[in-house]
C-alpha cells in the first residue's frame, strides 16, 4: 500500500528517462529550448540543416510522440497549425528526487 504512490512516480519517471535516452529527442529539446513553439516542419528542417540528420518526417513525428507521452513536449493548435512546446516540469521531478547540493570548499 505504501508502495503505490512511489510506483506511479517510478512509471512516470521511467517514461521521462526513456524519452531522454535518445540523441535525436535530446536535439529536439535543445532546439525547442532555443525557440519554443515550432511546427513539425520547422523541427524537421532545423534537425536536417543544423544537425545533419537525415530522418523522415514520420520518424521525427514519432520521436515527438514519445516526448509528448512523457510530458516533455506539449502541443497547442494556433490557427491551422500545431506547435510543439518544451515542458520542463517532468525534469523538476527528477531534480526534486536528487537535488543538487551546494558544495562548500573544504
Amino acid at each position: 500500500m505504501i508502495c503505490k504512490p512511489s510506483l506511479a512516480y517510478s512509471v512516470f519517471v521511467v517514461d521521462v528517462f526513456r524519452a531522454l535516452d535518445d540523441e535525436t529527442r535530446r536535439l529536439v529539446l535543445d532546439e525547442l529550448s532555443v525557440r519554443d513553439g515550432q511546427t513539425l516542419f520547422e523541427i524537421c528542417s532545423v534537425l536536417t540543416m543544423r544537425h545533419g540528420l537525415s530522418l523522415t518526417r514520420q520518424a521525427i513525428s514519432q520521436h515527438l510522440g514519445v516526448l509528448e507521452s512523457a510530458g516533455l513536449v506539449v502541443t497547442e493548435r494556433r490557427g491551422r497549425a500545431k506547435f510543439h512546446f518544451f515542458n520542463r516540469d517532468p525534469l523538476s521531478e527528477i531534480t526534486g528526487r536528487w537535488p543538487s547540493r551546494k558544495t562548500t570548499p573544504p
Partner: peptide, 10 residues
C-alpha cells in the same frame, strides 16, 4: 491542405 497546414508544411 488541412493536414499539411497542421504540420506546418509550406
Amino acid at each position: 491542405r488541412e493536414a499539411l497546414a497542421e504540420d506546418g508544411i509550406p
